[in-house]
Design a protein around this nucleic acid. Structure first.
Lengths: 338, 338
DNA sequence: CTGAAAGCGCTTACAG
DNA sequence: CTGAAAGCGCTTACAG
């Protein structure tokens, strides 16, 4: 009737359930006579037996699931990271359990607790709220946790991030070399670590190049509409920048719309650079100059950190951070100042 | 040291674990004296107690998780569906557990079994392989299953699909009205239900309009490169179509590249229509005419089907299918024949 | 109103 | 080489 359990297999094979367990587990199989193993395997196959992962996890105190909390799956930035995570975790018998939070702080907390209740063995946080990992009692449970695409303010939490610093410098240098001297920044939200970091680094990079401080407008979110609104404000303020660096591609696209609506051509009147190299930005008009971020690799590296932590029981060295190189992809939205 | 259990809470509150259980569960709380409930709640709060969902599920035989198998999360078509599912399932206390399969048949099987072992209460399949749901012993376990974006060949499995039929007719009519008489189709894989259905319906629609049978080339996958290759073949065959309908937006973008490389302008020389209205296709050059599919709503409806099935224990009526309307979004990649 | 007992489906020392 | 027993952390009839 209902799904067969070990009891059913045991009955059919004429052995105890403990013997079934041993026969089914490769590591304990050789404790048994070949004959017994065969009988058990046959019985299990006949019945279409599938082990109950819940019961096993309860007993072994290992769920073999890694929880992940993500702000928004709909943002194409994240799926490749998940794929990287899944691919390496999967090879080691772990499953990824993903929860969306819509960038909402209490949904982050809620997601965290729900994952904890599900007894995840480890956690990957790609949430945006700075300090979140420290506020929550994760370290207490000694649960392996790594951040991805976010730096930690707590040195006991390792993280994997793109080398935004170098990349933003590269963007500034690129614009400088094209002859731009007045530049502006359409920044991401400043309570999000990437938004803040890119803005700060861009300001610093401009200073290093001897450029005047960039005009800046902060967007409420990493999305097209906020980018458009921020750029409109920039234009309304009468800025005279010949180049705009946007905090990410979505913001850049919003900026593109605002510029166009404001009668400015890209790149003829103003050059535009985005961030992330999301799908299709090479196909828009004009193809967007942007920064390619190693999303898949970030997922892979985060998974590797977690796996060695899980295997050895030892957290990575205090202050561990993995920084992955990005690279600038020059397309037609940025051009020499004429 | 390790995470507190009911035993710890019980000890601290000076009651039995069964009493803790009753106090923590809203439905059984009123069996207890207000005083006891308070003491237990206080003890639980003090200890930061979190119930173990695995143990509860094992005992109650309900995991409150719904499994989903998806070909590729990286395809922007799917995340909105997941969001729709998550949003309504979440409101009813269910979590979605998602697995990727890369469109690979044995990974689909594997994903299915892994979900089954995790004791999911229900399953959503967005896999592409026709007949997959019938081949697998899902009905046997009487596990609620619904397909999304795929029709079933088994009337006992309900499904939620976009009204591809009407939409493809609309595409054909649109091209016809623009004056196109020779049209071609860059089809999706024919072992994928959407790929096959769109091709068949397009051929039929053309016939109904009195158009000659469309030239057709089948792509190996719903992606840019296959679309480009298929279109190149079409061009190599010397087709004289003035309009191309592609099986989805990614194929359309591949087609766009091939056309451009072949020296044809869109829409001046050939009109192009895609399918799905994926993010940013309104920003490419030229903005793509395409069909908007109600992805989020499909997720919602699938979740609703599952929830009533789960609540009542009754499957939807034999042969239940939910068809959601799409609509054609006319942009600049399609134009009147000159 | 509350406790003691049984059991969900496994795994793993402990005997033999 | 294999079985019987205990227990993972819960919930829920069953008593009282």
């Amino acid at each position: 009737m209902s799904r067969p359990t070990m009891k059913h297999v045991a009955a059919r094979a004429g052995v105890d359930t403990s013997t079934v367990s041993r026969a089914l587990n490769e590591r304990t199989r050789d404790m048994l006579s070949g004959d017994t193993v065969e009988r058990v395997l046959a019985a299990a196959a006949d019945l279409g037996y599938r082990p109950n992962a819940l019961a096993r996890s309860l007993r072994t105190q290992r769920s073999h699931v890694v929880g992940m909390v993500v702000p928004d799956l709909t943002n194409p930035f994240f799926p490749p990271i998940l794929r990287g995570l899944e691919d390496v975790l999967g090879r080691h018998g772990y499953t990824l359990l993903v929860t969306n939070t819509d960038n909402h702080l209490d949904r982050e907390r809620q997601a965290l607790h729900s994952l904890l209740e599900r007894q995840v063995d480890a956690m990957v946080l790609a949430t945006s709220h700075i300090g979140f990992e420290a506020a929550e009692p994760l370290a207490v449970g000694a649960l392996p946790v790594v951040l991805v695409n976010r730096r930690s303010i707590d040195a006991s939490v390792p993280f994997v991030v793109p080398d935004d610093d170098a990349a933003v410098h590269e963007v500034a240098a690129h614009l400088y070399e094209l002859g731009h001297r007045r530049v502006a920044h359409v920044a991401g939200p400043q309570d999000v670590s990437t938004g803040r970091a890119r803005a700060e680094v861009f300001v610093a990079a401009c200073a290093e190049l001897g450029l005047p401080e960039p005009d800046m407008e902060v967007s409420e979110a990493f999305a097209v509409e906020p980018g458009r609104r921020a750029t409109e404000k920039l234009l309304a303020r009468g800025i005279d920048a010949s180049a705009i660096f946007a905090g990410n591609d979505l913001l850049a696209i919003g900026a593109l719309q605002a510029l166009r609506d404001g009668g400015r051509q890209v790149p003829d009147d103003v050059s535009l650079v985005g961030y992330n190299d999301m799908p299709l930005v090479d196909m828009i008009d004009p193809p967007l100059t942007t920064v390619e971020v190693p999303k898949y690799a970030m997922g892979e590296r985060a998974a590797e950190l977690l796996l060695t932590w899980l295997d050895t029981g030892e957290p990575p060295d205090h202050g561990t951070e993995v920084t992955l190189p990005c690279h600038l992809v020059v397309r037609r939205s940025s051009a020499a100042l004429t």
